[in-house]
């Protein structure tokens, strides 16, 4: 299990009153285990094999020796893209507006919406019309000025949690969480989450990990990957 919550003993760090040798031993070992794994925080930079599998492009169709594809050389038209406008994740009590966003021209970074209550869909990547690739939605974990953000609870998600993404016509596409990963921002394989090939999936991204008061930056990114169901 490489998803970051899988091994963390969040709910069974039992520290009951010490009554017997057995309980005492279990309690202490539990506490030791909690100290060893729980307190160090999630293990960063361990990619999930499930996410890698979803991201790997399907094998190229066997080359047909006879037919050479021919297309009319018409000027390209803007393709039909269905923008997500709503993101609902009941496991974290979230029902957020989704804005279409692109790149911050000053930094070249993902232009996460300034309001921490909204989340941003990467409009250059796949939308809800897609049959493959990664639909990316990123949102704030928090902000100094506005407090907790829409994605504050993102890292608490677990494999199996349901995610619903709605479009303007109130149609809903459902996804199911397969992994929660954490990477240092210097190590995150962003190309995997911004890929336009591989299985259709949803990548939810926010910040996490240790916070540097001086630079006011989090060290890590949290990525939740959900597959279409």
């Amino acid at each position: 299990m490489r998803s970051y919550f899988a091994g963390a003993p969040r709910h069974h760090g039992a520290r009951r009153p010490v009554m017997s040798r057995r309980n005492l031993l279990t309690g202490s070992l539990g506490a030791a285990a909690l100290l060893a794994t729980g307190c160090t925080g999630p293990r960063a930079d361990e990619p999930s094999a499930d996410v890698e599998a979803l991201a790997s492009p399907s094998p190229a169709p066997t080359a047909q020796a006879t037919a050479v594809p021919v297309q009319p050389g018409a000027l390209p038209q803007a393709g039909k893209v269905v923008a997500p406008v709503r993101l609902r994740i009941s496991a974290m009590g979230l029902d957020a507006r989704v804005q279409a966003v692109g790149i911050d021209p000053r930094t070249g970074d993902f232009a996460v919406p300034p309001s921490v209550d909204s989340v941003g869909w990467y409009r250059f990547g796949p939308g809800l019309e897609a049959t493959g690739g990664s639909i990316v939605i990123a949102g704030h974990v928090d902000s100094a000025a506005q407090g907790k953000g829409a994605f504050f609870g993102l890292r608490e998600l677990d494999a199996g949690d349901q995610v619903e993404v709605g479009d303007r016509a109130a149609r809903v596409v459902r996804f199911q969480v397969v992994a929660v990963e954490q990477f240092r921002k210097t190590k995150i394989p962003l190309a995997r989450y911004f890929a336009r090939d591989g299985a259709l999936r949803l990548s939810l991204i926010t910040c996490g990990g240790p916070f540097d008061e001086a630079s006011r930056h989090y060290r890590d990114n949290i990525v939740v990957t959900a597959r279409a169901v």
Binding site: I103, T107, G108, D109, F110, V112, Y122, A138, G139, H140, V141, D142, S143, A144, Q146, G147, K148, G149, F151, F152, K185, L190, F194, I205, T206, C207, G208, F211, E213, R216, H217, Y218, N221
Partner: peptide
């Protein structure tokens, strides 16, 4: 994108 900066609160 170059990165996904999505928090500066430290909460």
């Amino acid at each position: 994108p170059g990165g996904v900066p999505s928090g500066d609160g430290g909460l």
